[in-house]
Amino acid sequence: MEKRATFSNLWLAAAFIAPQMLLIFVFFYWPSGEALYWAVTLEPPFGGSNDWVGLLNFQTVFADPKYWSSVRISLAFAGIATALSLVIAVILALFVDRRLPGHQVYKFTFFLPYALAAPAVGLAFRFIFSPDAGFVSAINRVFPDIWNPALDGYDAFALIVFAQSWKMVGYNFIFFLAALQSIPRSVIEACAMDGAGVMRRMRDVQLPLIAPTLFFLIVINITDSFVDSFGIVDITTGGGPARATDLMVYKIYADGFQGKDYSLAAAQSIVLMLLVIALTVIQFRYVERRIHYS
């Protein structure tokens, strides 16, 4: 039996697709093509002589130990920030789903952070976590030098992880809550009648049923922490101290826009794009298989 609906008129189909294709072309393929062209030439800032240099830019990138440390930091950042924000979001969503008193207020306030732009988040975190002047300075007064993101690379890394997860929690929360609320009440009630406690119901019924949402959020969060973390890093740490928070996307900005080495930045952009594509493919291929869509 033929289940698919198909267009008999191909031209009409093409016309429907065209606007979308045009958008994708203008905003994705064209810039990517341009970046690829810059990545295999040496581009002076004001344009002009593009000398073909083959893979030189990529060799320069890969031969740089600082680049590999930037890749490691980015992977750690994506992994930890994603895990942290998902765990917090799912706990909050489970609580709100249980309709504890005031859950409407929580629902609203939990989502608010996502409405903030990354630089605004960065600014807030810089004020709160600044070792001399922020709220955290009170802790520093009790335990001197325990927290100093300006000098300690681990503190700085923790700071940007907090900021990124805090920003994403609201977004994740809304998706988790929607998923939890779409689980039929009868299923939960049946479990309760069988004697399953709150924790047991969460672990064995609710969490497996929201797995598709979880998967979707992992993909979104990882992509976001690779490409949208720029604002946070720029405002809070500027990639320092001693490159401890030099994420790949920040390094691209620093090399390309501050250093005006467009070719080196273009080569790094291509690598970042391939990395994000690869990660997404891996997730779809291996993680998604273990998820059952109802």
Partner: peptide
Amino acid sequence: GNFTSIRAEVRAELEAAFTGQ
């Protein structure tokens, strides 16, 4: 040329030295 990037390199290395790395 590209003195902005050179400044950034020096700054990062000084940070490493002053934090004892």
